[in-house]
Design a protein around this nucleic acid. Structure first.
Length: 523
DNA sequence: ATAGGGTTAG
């Protein structure tokens, strides 16, 4: 018969165990309530008696509050790490979107002899997507080796991985390997089929699913949109038993992509009428349309809606608004929003610098860039430099442009992309240094695209470099839109025979020309 | 104490 022990019979060791246990429980309670500070205080006070569970809980608490550095410090100081400690750290790194550190920690885990389990793989696979996609089959073989392939979470992660690799066969294979499938598993198959362009298979899958939820419906709608079948998407959308903000936004986005603004706006109004509140995704999508097509009035109306909705502090939305205002020609409003932002990220700075460049405010663009990097310590990315370089183009600042072109690589390790070369070619071309532009095109590690040719020829046209343009003619003949530039140059020279010849080629080749061609040479 | 599906910005 078991009875409660009297305090007298408790030995020092069990006392120790009890106090450890209650400390651990208290820490867990604090963390569950979102109170990291008190948890940490208790943890520090009882540091020597804390067990691995207490350490792990404390790490989880820091990660939940985005205190990755504190989490890392604790992890490094831990006397004993178990698989949960490693998994928790991995998921923390995954949350902060740091694939390289994630990769390193995973390798470290293996080196330390800790065997990954069913919690490890979903985290690392999702973190590896877009960066280490190639490792998916290797991870798969490790998973098979450890006998984790039938796990539902591991399987779903693998399905996403193979979708990214466009491996239709393995996608189905992994799906079949999952023993007990739930609705998320089926949804992952839907996404996979849709992303790989198998709309029929996706529809068939949807039809034979044991149950579907609003995510399955939305996946189907979005999948049809991604595969450019807007009418099918709308058909499914109309059939939906209920809709939420995500499904409305997906459908609106579909129309925006089709440049069907009438339907997009009508749908937005129906959405409001159905008592679904738009969120920042919805507004962002609509603002993007306004920015792309200079719909200033609609843009300002959306701005009012955003102010009323209380979403105006959202970083993404402020950035979309800045972009809309600069592209609609109202740089002043753009700055008003920009200056009122509490936190700014790289994209926010990019949109204001790009806005200045577009408005010909080269000096302002460059001073904002200085503020961004030197005063605020925000790291520029490849888009920042496209904007900085195009500001230099507008200002005719050749030497400054060259300097930034070098700094980009040497100081920030950003690789030179075609767009950056296009800016430099444009910069040299406009400044009359056509020879330098030609040299740059020749030493560029890419096949020049239509933008590079356009920039180069615009430079030739501007400075009447007949000889250079003529020498380039053969090279650029795959691009029909280039011919207009030749017509101008030949015309200036009075070579009317060549003009007529070119014009004939333009007519022959320019069938189905698009907006892109009209905007040649502007970037 | 740790894990997976659908819509954002240049």
């Amino acid at each position: 018969m078991c009875s409660l022990r009297s305090p007298k019979t408790i030995s020092p060791t069990s006392f120790w165990q009890i106090s450890t246990l209650s400390t651990t429980n208290l820490i867990q309670d604090y963390i569950r309530d979102g109170n990291v500070n008190d948890a940490r205080k208790l943890f520090d006070e009882n540091l020597t008696s804390c067990n691995t569970i207490a350490w792990n809980s404390m790490i989880t608490g820091h990660i939940r509050h985005n205190q990755m550095q504190s989490a890392h410090d604790l992890f490094d100081r831990m006397p004993v790490r178990d698989v949960v400690s490693w998994n928790t750290m991995l998921s923390g790194l995954n949350k902060t979107k740091n694939p390289h550190k994630l990769h390193q920690l995973f390798l470290q885990m293996n080196r330390a002899g800790e065997r990954p389990n069913q919690f490890t793989f979903p985290t690392i696979i999702s973190g590896f997507l877009n960066t280490f996609d190639v490792l998916v089959p290797q991870l798969h073989s490790l998973i098979l080796h450890l006998g984790l392939h039938s796990n539902i979470f591991v399987g779903s992660a693998l399905m996403r991985g193979y979708t990214h690799l466009h491996d239709h066969y393995s996608l189905c294979h992994v799906f079949d390997d999952i023993l007990l499938k739930d609705i998320s598993t089926w949804n992952a198959l839907l996404v996979g089929y849709m992303d790989l362009g198998f709309t029929t298979e996706a529809q068939m899958t949807f039809n034979r699913m044991p149950e579907v939820n609003i995510i399955s419906w939305t996946t189907l709608v979005d999948g049809y949109i991604k595969n450019k079948k807007i009418n099918q998407a709308r058909h499914v959308f109309d059939e939906m038993p209920q809709k939420n903000v995500v499904s409305w936004t997906a459908m609106i986005k579909g129309y925006v992509q089709q440049e069907n603004y009438t339907n997009a706006i009508q749908l937005f109004i129906s959405m409001l009428n159905s008592n679904t509140s738009p969120n920042h995704f919805t507004f962002s999508t609509l603002l993007d349309a306004c920015a792309g097509f200079s719909m200033f009035l609609l843009g300002t109306q959306l701005h009012s809606c955003i102010l009323k909705s209380g979403l105006s502090q959202e970083l993404v939305l402020s950035t979309s608004l800045i972009d809309m205002y600069t592209k609609c020609g109202d740089i002043k409003s753009a700055f008003t929003i920009f200056d009122s932002m509490e936190t700014k990220n790289t994209v926010s700075w990019n949109s204001i610098i790009g806005g200045c460049a577009r408005h010909g405010l080269a000096t302002r663009a460059l001073s904002e860039f200085k503020k961004m990097t030197d005063e605020n310590g925000v790291k520029p990315d490849h888009v920042t430099y496209i904007n900085v370089l195009s500001a230099c183009v507008h200002g005719g600042l050749v030497e400054e442009g060259e300097w930034h072109f070098r700094e980009m690589v040497e100081r920030y390790g950003i690789g030179k992309e075609m767009k950056h070369y296009t800016c430099m070619v444009d910069l040299y071309g406009k400044a009359g240094e056509v020879d330098k532009a030609v040299r740059l095109v020749k030493e560029m590690p890419f096949e020049p695209d239509v933008g590079v040719w356009g920039a180069l020829l615009a430079g030739c046209g501007l400075h009447s470099c007949y000889e250079v343009a003529n020498g380039l003619e053969k090279l650029g003949q795959n691009y029909s839109s280039i011919y207009n530039m030749f017509i101008k140059i030949h015309g200036e020279k009075g070579s009317w025979g060549r003009v007529v010849e070119m014009r004939d080629r333009v007519i022959k080749k320019q069938k189905g020309s698009s907006r892109v061609e009209l905007s040649l040479g502007e970037s």
